[in-house]
């Protein structure tokens, strides 16, 4: 068994990989071992995995419903106890159940923003970098303009026009969060643009669209992913802020920011109503920050010293 593992490691860490697959796996292994050495990064990974599990199995984990009101005479604003771990809110609902179900909304927001904003940034950045000239100038000017905007206030104005709701909040956040990805993708593209292999592909007669999509974008993806992971916490905080202002998910949806807003009225006497969702936001954001830092250090050893 140990012998087996040793040969595996030898194969993975080989200086002279015999196949493309071995080289690729070897590189992934090196990145993983750098990542796994970082205890904080592993803690971040653990938090995010836990978030995923909680979101998937929310119905089994939460002992009560997240949205139906409890008994308003007996179950209202109860402090934390063995029955209700995080207490109950003003509608007599179990706060633990609501926090658990809220994880789904948080994941929904984060994934949707990433799915919208990252490809947009990637596309704009690679096109600008590869085309150069006036295309580059125009696209980057637009990017800079968006980068100089106040994100939260702009998202506020967008939601104000689109109407409150979780999907509109996602759109508003996505509109304000693509510029950094465009910047990163452009910088990567500029270093690749005159590489020999790109010239070779061009000589074969590949179209610019094909070169960008098949030969440049795949190489920009990893740095964009790192940046997206680092931005996740910011996205969660912005979404929670919109929810807190009543512009995100609408009641009775158990969105964490909106829960803090409704707990605000009782914060002086029933502090647990607002405290629990805030801790949840903090823990998840922390998880994404730790994971992002770890990914950056593992995939980009140059920056690891900072």
């Amino acid at each position: 068994m140990t012998n087996d593992a040793q040969t595996w490691r030898a194969w993975l860490t080989s200086e002279r990989p015999a196949s493309r697959r071995q080289a690729r796996l070897g590189r992934a292994y090196a990145a993983w071992s750098r990542f796994a050495d970082n205890r904080l990064a592993m803690a971040g990974l653990f938090i995010i995995l836990a978030l995923l599990l909680v979101a998937v199995f929310a119905d089994m984990i939460a002992p009560y419903s997240a949205v139906t009101d409890g008994d308003l005479r007996t179950a209202r604003l109860l402090p934390p106890s063995a029955m209700h771990w995080f207490g109950t809110d003003d509608q007599g609902r179990d706060i633990f159940a609501r926090v658990v179900h809220g994880s789904r909304i948080t994941l929904f927001v984060v994934i949707l923003v990433a799915v919208i904003a990252a490809p947009v940034g990637l596309l704009i950045g690679t096109i600008a970098g590869y085309a150069g000239g006036w295309v580059d100038a125009v696209l980057m000017r637009i990017t800079d303009i968006f980068l100089a905007f106040p994100r939260l206030v702009l998202a506020l104005a967008f939601v104000a026009a689109l109407g409150p709701g979780i999907v509109n909040a996602v759109i508003a956040i996505a509109i304000t969060s693509w510029p950094p990805y465009a910047r990163i993708a452009r910088a990567e593209t500029l270093t690749l643009r005159h590489a020999d292999y790109i010239n070779a592909v061009r000589l074969i007669g590949a179209s610019p669209a094909r070169i960008i999509a098949r030969h440049i974008m795949p190489l920009c993806v990893s740095s964009v992913i790192v940046r997206v992971t680092l931005d996740m916490a910011g996205i969660i905080l912005t979404a929670a802020g919109l929810g807190f202002l009543g512009l995100g998910a609408q009641p009775p949806s158990p969105e964490w920011g909106a829960m803090i807003a409704s707990g605000r009225r009782f914060v002086l006497d029933q502090w647990w109503v607002a405290a629990a969702p805030g801790v949840a936001i903090f823990v998840v954001s922390l998880g994404f920050n730790l994971l992002g830092d770890g990914l950056r250090d593992a995939l980009d050893p140059k920056a690891a010293g900072q």
Binding site: A233, G234, L237, A240, G241, F244, G257, I260, G263, R264, V267, L268, W271, A274, A275, P277, G278, I281, F282, S285, L286, N289, L290
Partner: peptide, 21 residues
Amino acid sequence: LVGYSVPIFWLGLMALLVFYA
């Protein structure tokens, strides 16, 4: 890390609870 992870409005509420109330 805390500064990058904690929601500012929540920390404000908790600060009001502790330092004011």
